[in-house]
Amino acid sequence: MNIDKRLVRKDSLEKLFDILKQNSKKIYAPVTKNGKTTFRDTASFSLVSTGYIQTTESSKDISFPRTEKLLDYSKNKEGMSVKGIDLKDIPEVILWGIRPCDAIGIGELGSIFNWDYKDEIYNNRSSKVTVFGFSCNKSDEYCFCTSVGGNPGNTEGSDILFTRMGEDGDYIAEILTEKGQAVAEIASGIFERLETADKEKFLADVPVKFNHNEISEKLDKFFESKEWVDQSLRCLGCGACAYVCPTCACFDIEDEAHGKNGSRVRCWDSCGFSHFTVHTSGHNPRDVQSARWRQRIMHKFSYMPERLSVYGCTGCGRCSRACPVDMNILEHLISIQEVTV
């Protein structure tokens, strides 16, 4: 469809939120607690944070929840009954205020969940999300979307993309998909006619820091490099980077039993944990942190491009911001680019 560009006045945003709420839409919007901004089911516009460069957590929780039920079972006299989750129960939601680097991540995550085997649970969740993207007019030193093919005003993955015209200005709303159209129609009065608008001049300047094709090519022969050991020495092996990442998809499957009933759940896991790959025999193919750090980078910049034709990184910089020991992915990628094999 043709991109429909509209004007949304800054004061109308709250009205839009309220109208959607009145139409009993579930809205996940950035909310700040303890100084950290995260997407939460939000009841009122007054709770919605603005001015954040990036949320602490990505929005992947909405389509790939940190803990999600796969099936229920119950043991009875006749034997066993097992019931998978009903995809119809998955609610329609609006994801409000995500950045273009998160929006693009939904597709990257999707490519993992649809590699040969179609994961309908993920697909169903993500199909029920209407994405209200907000372009970036500010960035910080951790941002590098432009280095992995994105940009601060990227429309990919959003259903409607809002770009604020200046610090305190009104918004350009690009209605990008039918899903976006459908939601815009609910509040049609809000989306006014727009004569001309050049959103580019309002976008943050994110300089390109490395050439991702070069990095992918180099990584192909980089497995044995000493660089991994040097980079990962201070890594503590927690899962913060993976859990805030919009495209990290590693998961665990566990059973939760309560008496005769219980469920099987899928929950986040991280390739950085030392027990992630350990065999029951005790043998661990990735037994040192450097091997696990290598896996994280290789997966995103070598394996995924080769096997899935997408990057596993959107340049959001969250992992670097969240890391307790300042493992800065951008710095490390640049040093991989620079180091001679």
Binding site: Y28, D41, D61, P65, E68, D89, E256, S263, V265
Partner: peptide, 11 residues
């Protein structure tokens, strides 16, 4: 305590 018995939820 009964996470599993709750409806499929987000976030």
């Amino acid at each position: 305590s009964r996470h599993a018995e709750k409806e499929v939820n987000h976030g």
